[in-house]
Design a protein around this nucleic acid. Sequence first.
DNA 1: TCCTTTATTGAGAATGCTTGCAACAAGGAA
DNA 2: TTCCTTGTTGCAAGCATTCTCAATAAAGGA
Lengths: 144, 144
Amino acid sequence: MSHCHTYLKKLRDQGYRITPQREMIVQIIAHCGKHMSAEEVMEIVREKSSSINIATVYRTLDMLVENGLASKFDLGNGKTAYATGKHGPHIHLVCKHCGSVTEVSENDISAFLERIEDLYDFDCHPYHFSIHGLCGECSNSEIS
Amino acid sequence: MSHCHTYLKKLRDQGYRITPQREMIVQIIAHCGKHMSAEEVMEIVREKSSSINIATVYRTLDMLVENGLASKFDLGNGKTAYATGKHGPHIHLVCKHCGSVTEVSENDISAFLERIEDLYDFDCHPYHFSIHGLCGECSNSEIS
DNA sequence: TCCTTTATTGAGAATGCTTGCAACAAGGAA
DNA sequence: TTCCTTGTTGCAAGCATTCTCAATAAAGGA
């Protein structure tokens, strides 16, 4: 069912081994519509009466992000959220007061960035941006 | 000397108490041109042969950020950097490979955001954005 | 100058996440 | 099907940061 198998195939094609832990984690975040933290993934794992170490959850989620199968973003309160289905650059608007997250869709990004004032149209009153990526030097050198 | 006193006065005017710890921390980051981590602030404190608890360093730095006297940004490797002198929105470009940080000056922000492709002119190959601020709801309600 | 109020500090526990390493197991080769 | 190589896992320790709470000390008032 769903895109789980696509995800797993993609990983296998990249040379990753498919373990029961990875299958379960991929299934969980692929089926859950919203973004979730590593701890939330753990809770669902526990409900299924199996056990995966939290380090493995983090490692698997980060691996999915590395391979463009999921995205990861800082919620600003010391916690990190993960979600599937986003590729390429995308933007999360995080409220530092209530923690709400608004996602700017891939189609809207260009329009969104055209003018900084547009932020207010998104009800976002910014105080800080971070853009994570590779600098010129690093994107020139070969990185696995 | 320098803007230390301006900073301290601003804090006092806001109702904060001026403690020796706060004076020392403000002096350190106001005099140090570059951005620094809480741990780097601690090292300088130790060189001055006094001692401040690390929790106090974090609390003071965060207080400066809250009051617009400093900025704070995620270096992407689990560490956080602080720097004085920036007000309003500003952008840090963080390389996930080498950790280098490029700052987009306040004057350049609008131009920078005009088109997402401009990122490449900054030698930034993006994979993720976060914009931290207040959502509409929270910026309407009164927040201290 | 001394008192009182209340913000601030230090200490240590707690949280969220990462890392090092030995044991284990996926997946290709024989 | 069995074996071997090497990627993965679990565990425990480590790191950066935050939180709780009792003790302390700014700063204003008497």
